[in-house]
């Protein structure tokens, strides 16, 4: 048995492919799990996150009543520490260097406050976090082989490939799409791909990547591929490596050289392809 659901969520196209065993409603339940994360973490419509941001921007503390948002904050706090502070969903050019370090999260009291105005934007982390939730639902529903994609830059797999062994994926070169940058195999794992160059990076809806240390926009041409047991962790690692300086990049890569890949390209290659959207020269 093989089935698939496709839908738009978290600002991208999501596909859930299931092979073999599992409850009939497994994919539907997984879709609901992803949509629930989107509802809680989105900043593009009213959500628990936008309510939190409004209070933090106003210099007020906030109780965290939403369970998904609470879990996300717990995960983020851990990931911020494990990535040397480089994964920072509170990094924002408007507020200079104020980021996650300005936030105090009291887990016991489920209370968040900040020493100066900040706002959270979960970005790619949200996709990985949502895929983790969906994978958990699928496993609960008896699924043993599944591939989940959120915009093809965030992939999670459950179990082995339906024909056995790992799931083979190839990441194209962001500047030369006919070439392969790296090939990987996943089993019960997730991968996150982040890049400052290539198709899509010049799209107007895409937010710039901010370096937490100085709140500048990261423009150096770089591509990251990070694999982890959890999608949220993979997303955090690829984001952190994208903004890391040489020293900290080395430290993070040394954590697992077989599952973290960093590609720097010549600086001239940093010009994003704007051909799909340009102004008249009138």
């Amino acid at each position: 048995m093989a089935d698939v659901v496709r839908f738009a969520s978290m600002g991208t196209r999501v596909e859930l492919h299931r092979f073999g065993a599992g409850d009939d409603d497994a994919l539907t339940a997984a879709q609901r799990a992803i949509e629930a994360v989107d509802d809680a973490l989105t900043i593009h419509r009213p959500s628990a996150t936008t309510a939190l941001n409004e209070r933090l921007m106003a210099g007020q503390g906030a109780a965290i009543d939403d369970a998904l948002l609470f879990d996300a904050l717990v995960t983020i706090e851990e990931l911020n520490a494990s990535t040397l502070g480089l994964f920072d969903p509170a990094a924002d050019r408007r507020f200079g260097v104020a980021g996650w370090s300005a936030i105090a999260f009291d887990r016991g009291a489920a209370w968040v406050e900040a020493s100066q105005p900040v706002a959270l934007d979960f970005g790619g982390f949200g996709k990985g976090f949502a895929l983790d939730r969906a994978c958990a639902v699928l496993r609960e529903k008896g699924v043993v082989s599944a591939c989940l994609s959120a915009g093809e830059s965030s992939i999670a797999v459950v179990g082995e490939h339906p024909l056995g062994g790992g799931w083979p994926f190839a990441v194209p070169h962001p500047l030369r799409p006919d070439e392969i940058l790296v090939e990987i195999e996943l089993t019960d794992e997730s991968v996150s791909i982040s890049s400052t160059v290539g198709a899509g990076t010049g799209a107007p809806e895409r937010a710039a990547m901010i370096r937490p240390a100085d709140a500048t926009i990261v423009s150096a041409p770089r591509c990251l591929v990070a694999i982890d047991r959890l999608g949220a962790h993979a997303e955090a690692m690829s984001t952190a490596l994208l903004v890391a300086d040489k020293d900290r990049a080395e430290r993070l890569l040394n954590g697992d050289r077989t599952r973290r890949f960093l590609f720097d390209f010549p600086r001239g290659a940093a010009i994003p392809d704007q051909s799909a959207r340009m102004h008249f020269n009138d």
Binding site: G11, E152, P172, E183, G200, A203, E205
Partner: peptide, 24 residues
Amino acid sequence: LLRMQADVASGKKRTVPIGGATWF
């Protein structure tokens, strides 16, 4: 990913290219 479905149905295991243009 669509091709992957067809591959599996025909018993083929091929590398799946991913991470291309993000769908908006």
